[in-house]
């Protein structure tokens, strides 16, 4: 059972995400969009979307940094003051994300026109996001100093997937809420290619160094007269 949940499921989730996203981006470009509903409602979206996105993007980046350079983070947070500052900031962003998501959900249910453009998969997204954020806040509050045990216990667990030698011994001893948070995190990863979440893989970073005007030629101008 543990193997199934802690090893097979994460592997499946990551593979699904990888293969699914490649297929969707490569072949189903037309289906990828932010599916903005600002056209129908703008005021609540202003608060909801800005709070939610600012929060979630910073939290995700935080998780990623912890995964990529766990040792540096551990070293950096050796100093208790630094650890406290980081923890408090992360907690504030978590609360911000939570408030944002609640506003967005409220908006979706309350505004009849926004409801029209709500897909079934959106509720899956909201369900998993809520689960993820609530368990995250719970863990942050009841199992403090997560940054230090994340980098020392969770990061090695996830690293072990990539070295193809999954090691769940330390992970299996963690409190249940942390496990729920981690597993719903994998569920989140798994649904990315099938939902609107794919939109953040489409982040248009190449815009920063692109020239403003885009010309495309459909005919081989050189060939026509010669």
């Amino acid at each position: 059972m543990e193997t199934l949940l802690y090893i097979v499921f994460p592997y499946l989730a990551m593979l699904t995400c990888l293969i699914g996203s490649i297929i969707r981006i490569r072949f189903l470009g037309y289906t990828i969009s932010s599916f903005s509903s600002q056209f129908f409602e703008s005021k609540l979206l202003y608060w909801g979307s800005r709070m939610f996105h600012t929060g979630i993007v910073i939290l995700l980046l935080g998780h990623l940094v912890g995964l990529i350079i766990p040792r540096s983070i551990t070293l950096f947070t050796n100093h208790p003051l630094r650890l406290v500052i980081l923890e408090v900031t992360a907690f504030a962003f978590a609360l911000m994300t939570f408030v944002g998501v609640v506003i967005l959900l409220y908006r979706r249910i309350k505004e009849p026109r926004v409801r029209v453009v709500t897909r079934k998969t959106d509720f899956l997204v909201y369900g998993i996001l809520l689960l993820q954020i609530i368990t995250g806040i719970w863990v942050a509050y009841f199992h403090r100093w997560g940054i230090s045990w994340y980098t020392t216990v969770l990061a090695p667990y996830i690293h072990s997937f990539f070295t193809l030698s999954p090691d769940i011994s330390a992970f299996a001893t963690l409190p249940v809420m942390i496990k729920v948070h981690a597993l719903s995190g994998f569920a989140f990863i798994a649904i990315i290619p099938f939902t609107r979440l794919i939109h953040f893989f489409a982040y248009p970073y190449h815009y920063f160094y692109r020239q403003y005007l885009v010309f495309v030629s459909n005919i081989n101008l050189e060939k026509i007269n010669h």
Binding site: F215, V216, S217
Partner: peptide, 8 residues
């Protein structure tokens, strides 16, 4: 970069 001007 989805919007473009046709050169021809």
């Amino acid at each position: 970069g989805a919007i473009y001007k046709r050169a021809e």
